[in-house]
Design a protein around this nucleic acid. Structure first.
Lengths: 227, 227
DNA sequence: TCAAAAGTGTTCCATTTACACCCATGT
DNA sequence: ACATGGGTGTAAATGGAACACTTTTGA
């Protein structure tokens, strides 16, 4: 009782999603050491005694990839007996989102390289990481319909069409432009800016910004975001 | 790297809900040993090296309370640095539901006693367990609206009014009997049995049984349960 | 002037909500 | 016969889905 399970190790792993040009990507690292040396894996590593789980994830992400995350939540804890060849390792997986401008990568420590992969074109992954990733993708797809986390994947200022494209990508089906706009506008969680952006051909688009204050107020009033 | 965080210990804790006569209750144990000796806590304990997290929860529940659980899912992992006076202990919390006939309790091992407490009349809890419990209550209340887990709290055969009462208790508001029945019937996930039950005064009620096969089929077809 | 993307309303249908009386039994 | 809880349908309102043309720019 005084020294229980000294053999069980604890790690954290992060599934960080990015979005650019209509594609959802996930951040992976190439392992520098065994096991799975040279193979791709989710960023992550052992939790230190004096840090919380969130601190551990943020540290590992910083060390292995150099990214600055802007949304992070716990995903699930994977505790199967044989999920790690080094012995009994339980991993708390996190789910993160990042703005496109945080995309610049710098691999170091345990990582040989850090790279974005389109979620439809993934390499083979180490450990049970493809299982973790599947769960994270499911969570992302499910969650955007009832919480406004989609904005965390866009620039702070974005044209409406970016949001629409993001939703139709994640939902895997076309989204009616007029109905979608109506829905979002009815919640008044977007502020229309005076700026416009002109992307090649076509009429320039107004830029919008997510109004988090307004959203938090809505939450308090019990009004729920739903697409 | 070869022997990371040997100091971090791993536990599981279970928040098990029961339901009887219009009241939601939660299963607690009275601790036999320090820390928090004599105080109430969630059932749980250290994970053994050769068992999965689910196995650990089920074992601890069996040992400390004697209950047989019929629904179990992971709730959240609590990894704050100072949540346990014994040192760094990370706990994976589970969320469980139990039929009324599984209610017979038998405390043993680390538990002095095991008892059901109405969730509106709780004792002070050990560790950060009241925080865990709050999260579980929120999960229960949220989840019944989009997954048919309410049936896990009732007997396998139950009158419609039991289900209705359960929902109005959990949702904290009255439920329109006719509309509720219409909704449930439209999904055809309840089988009406030939039996009737007569509970004191009033017209006897037909008994129903949850048709899990039917529900799983609906899920495959993409039809979602929603109240 | 043409191509490309942005912006905008109305109608129809489905779903949800509100609501009240009769039925079968025990006392 | 009366008290108690079980069982049932309809109408109104709301919210969601379908749908096409005009506007503004770059090439």
């Amino acid at each position: 009782m005084s020294f229980p399970n000294p053999q069980i190790k604890l790690t954290v792993d992060a599934v960080v999603f990015g979005y650019e040009a209509g594609n959802i990507s996930v951040l992976l690292i190439q392992r520098k050491y065994d096991p799975f040396k040279g193979k791709w894996a989710l960023p992550g590593g052992f939790v230190l005694e004096e840090e919380s789980l969130e601190e551990a994830v943020e540290r590992e992400l910083r060390e292995e990839t150099g990214v600055a995350i802007n949304y992070l939540e716990q995903l699930y804890t994977f505790g199967g007996v044989n999920r790690d060849p080094r012995g009994r390792v339980v991993s708390v997986a996190y789910f993160g989102l990042i703005h496109p401008d945080g995309h610049t990568l710098e691999a170091s420590t345990d990582a040989e390289a850090a790279k974005w992969f389109d979620i439809n074109d993934l390499p083979q992954l180490s450990f049970d990481h493809s299982h973790i990733l599947d769960m994270a993708i499911e969570r992302l797809k499910g969650k955007i319909t009832y919480e406004p986390i989609g904005f965390e994947l866009l620039d702070t200022k974005f044209p409406f069409s970016d949001l629409e494209k993001l939703y139709s990508t994640l939902l895997g089906r076309p989204v009616d432009r007029r109905n979608f706009r109506k829905k979002i506008n009815s919640l008044k969680i977007l502020d229309e800016l005076d700026e416009k952006i002109s992307l090649g051909a076509g009429r320039p688009a107004s830029l919008f910004r997510f109004n988090e204050t307004r959203y938090k107020q809505l939450q308090k009033e019990g009004i729920i975001f739903e697409i």
